[in-house]
Amino acid sequence: MNCTIEARKLVLGYSGKIISTCLDIVISEPEIVAIIGPNGSGKSTFLKALSRLLPPEAGSVLLNGTDIHQLSPKKVARLLAVLPQSAQAPGDMLVRDLVANGRAPYIGLFGHLSADDQAAVQSAATATGIADLLFRRLDTLSGGERQRVWLAMALAQQPKILMLDEPTTYLDVHHQLEFMKLVNSLHRERKLTVVMVLHDLNHAARFSHRIIAMKKGEIFADGKAGDVLTVPNLRSLYGVEATVVTMEQGGFEHLVCLPHDICSSYGA
């Protein structure tokens, strides 16, 4: 069964300062959605609101037709998992224990992992390629390994929707591609809806089905990569001149964005 998340006339802000206004989107099919835009455009704020981490100033976020803030945290967590930008955990914690935290929405009063919980942890570890790391301490892992462990914790929730905030920021090129390909595989195999904030336009172009571009707190464009990642749009969004070309790899075509100069009139 598909899970739908919807923003209706969303107004967002912090401490009375309005960041975004009149945000309207519907995500109703299992797809990969990338949220892009310049720094300060409201991308992460929007993701936090969709994730129930930030109450709106006005408007609403609906999860399967119900206001997400009217649902219990456990009910939301059984449908939606979030991987924040800078996730933290004690360095001496075992990988197994961190992944098991993903079962919190299902664990009963006494906090014991059932056979189903243990199976979900093992399944998440296998899917993310960390099964051989389960008894390692977090502080012995590389950056790429740690990111896969956090992803495994989110998968252990068995969500329908996965939300990621700049998941490749601290990774080198190899591990960025490895992580993005893993997310793409999980989307296909588990029919996951993935909503992620990305800075890398080429990752957005290659791995997402839909791109939402934000500018100054508003949705500037929303559609397929070819409709959003155009030369005029990139000029308006980022103040850069770019060349956008189509590349074929492995029988699949995707766009590649090549920024090459700064617009002198940007922000004027």
Rank of each mutant, 00 (worst) to 15 (best):
M1D: 10
N2A: 14
T4P: 13
R8L: 13
G13I: 10
Y14H: 13
I19L: 10
S20Q: 06
S20F: 12
C22A: 15
L23P: 11
L23I: 15
D24A: 09
D24R: 07
V26G: 00
V26R: 15
I27W: 00
I27A: 13
I27H: 13
E29F: 02
E29R: 04
E31L: 04
A34D: 02
P38N: 12
P38F: 09
G40S: 07
L47R: 08
K48Y: 12
A49G: 14
A49I: 06
R52P: 12
L53I: 08
A58D: 14
S60W: 00
L62R: 04
L62A: 04
L62T: 01
N64D: 14
N64K: 00
H69M: 07
Q70E: 14
L71V: 09
S72M: 08
P73R: 00
K75E: 15
A77R: 01
A77E: 01
P84F: 11
P84V: 02
A87P: 15
A87G: 11
Q88F: 02
A89P: 09
M93S: 12
L94Y: 09
V95P: 13
R96K: 15
D97W: 06
D97T: 13
V99R: 03
A100G: 08
Y106D: 10
I107P: 10
I107L: 12
G108K: 07
G108V: 06
G108S: 13
G111I: 05
L113M: 12
A115F: 00
Q118M: 10
A125G: 12
A125N: 10
T126F: 03
G129E: 06
D132K: 14
R137F: 10
L138E: 04
T140R: 05
S142R: 11
S142Y: 04
G143R: 00
R146H: 11
Q147A: 08
V149K: 03
W150T: 08
L155F: 01
A156P: 02
I161E: 07
L162I: 01
L162K: 05
M163Q: 02
L164R: 06
T168A: 02
T168F: 00
T169A: 15
D172I: 01
H174R: 13
F179Q: 06
F179Y: 14
M180W: 01
L182K: 01
S185E: 11
S185Q: 13
L186I: 06
L192P: 12
T193K: 07
V194Y: 09
V195G: 10
M196Q: 12
L198D: 06
D200E: 13
L201T: 00
R206F: 04
F207P: 07
S208W: 07
R210I: 10
I212A: 11
K215A: 06
K216A: 15
I219K: 06
D222R: 05
A225L: 09
G226E: 00
D227A: 15
P232E: 01
P232W: 06
N233T: 04
L234N: 12
L237C: 07
V245T: 15
F252Q: 14
E253D: 04
E253S: 13
H254L: 00
H254A: 10
V256Y: 01
V256N: 05
C257Y: 00
P259F: 03
H260I: 06
I262V: 05
S264Q: 10
S265V: 14
